[in-house]
């Protein structure tokens, strides 16, 4: 009577190796965990005795807090390392740092790093489960999963939607993870922005590219604005912020190009007035805070699936 699935992944580094069924399975598991977040007593004993480490080489508010909340609600113990306060600032290498931490019996490591591929590098060298909390421009799998869980809640379907992702695609790991997962589920993914932000090669990954905001947003079910990642870029991507905002900002006029019931998303943190204006952020179609809530549920699901991936047949 019980539906079952075989879960054979140790790590969550990328959404690429996951099948459509596995993606849906994570999302369904997250949906069940959402109920726990609504309880008075937000605690279940599922991961009692497991240790979860967050190792962040880049700043983070949402992702780290959300992973920590998720682990704690599942009764796992959490340890946070921020690199500025650790031996990393003394020059210890990533692998040495992690090997030493793993020697203290860590079961899962959530890593954020500015180098693309850092999570994959680790996952092949440690026994603990490695979860990618964002690696350079590569991927941010749990962000895409929480985005899709949010879309699912508002649109009630997982496929056949038109999703416009607008802004700094080039530097965005969120855009890549979303593209991979949304395509697997059977959606139309549009990358919208100036040519400097959208390499042509994304067409090969299945994205449709629009250099004009009106065309890109036309008939979209979901509009996702991305942060202009000033810390990752030099100059020359756009003439001035004012000009960028005039052409590509999601504001109360440009949002009308999308469907009337389109939802507005942003992975945060937001540059208010640059990629999206304050009035749109405060619009009732804007689901940014729902995304954050869903983030905890998604991370509970990921931790649960990776850490309970038992091998013994009952």
């Amino acid at each position: 009577m019980t539906e079952k699935i075989k879960w054979n992944h140790k790590d969550l580094v990328s959404l690429e190796p996951l099948s459509k069924e596995e993606l849906i399975y994570i999302l369904e598991t997250a949906k069940s965990f959402e109920e726990v977040l609504k309880r008075d007593v937000k605690k279940v004993p599922t991961l009692r005795g497991k240790s979860v480490l967050t190792l962040f080489y880049e700043p983070s508010t949402r992702t780290r807090t959300s992973f920590e909340m998720a682990a704690k609600i599942l009764s796992a113990d959490t340890i946070n390392i921020s690199t500025s306060a650790s031996s990393v600032s003394k020059g210890e290498t990533l692998l040495d740092t992690v090997k030493n931490l793993e020697a203290m019996s860590i079961d899962a490591i959530i890593i954020r790093h500015s180098f693309s591929g850092a999570a994959e590098f680790l996952s092949k060298r440690v026994k603990a489960s490695v979860i990618n909390g964002g690696d350079g421009r590569h991927e941010h799998p749990t962000q895409a999963l929480l985005d899709i869980l949010t879309i699912w809640e508002y649109k009630n379907i997982l496929s056949g939607l038109k999703i416009a992702i607008v802004g700094d695609i080039l530097h965005s790991r969120v855009a890549r993870s979303n593209l991979i997962a949304l395509k697997k589920l059977g959606n139309e993914v549009r990358f919208v922005g100036p040519a400097t932000f959208i390499p042509e090669t994304f067409r090969e990954l299945g994205a449709e590219i629009y250099y004009n905001l009106e065309e890109g947003l036309y008939d979209a079910d979901v509009v996702m604005a991305l942060r202009i990642q000033k810390e990752r870029m030099g100059s020359g991507f756009y003439p001035t912020e004012r000009e960028y905002a005039r052409c590509f900002s999601i504001n109360k006029n440009s949002i009308n190009f999308a469907k009337k019931d389109a939802i507005i998303m942003h992975p945060g943190p937001v540059n208010r007035g640059l990629e999206i204006t304050s009035d749109v952020l405060d619009d009732k179609r804007c689901v940014v805070l729902d995304q954050v809530t869903k983030g905890v549920a998604v991370r509970m699901a990921v931790l649960y699936l990776l850490l309970t991936g038992g091998k013994v047949e009952n």
Binding site: T2, E3, K4, I5, K6, W7, Y25, E28, T29, K31, S32, F33, E35, T46, Y304, L307, T308, G309, G310, K311, V312, E313, N314
Partner: peptide, 12 residues
């Protein structure tokens, strides 16, 4: 929970 595989699906 750490022993069973394939695992039961979590229901709401």
């Amino acid at each position: 929970i750490f022993k069973i595989s394939p695992k039961h699906k979590i229901e709401t």
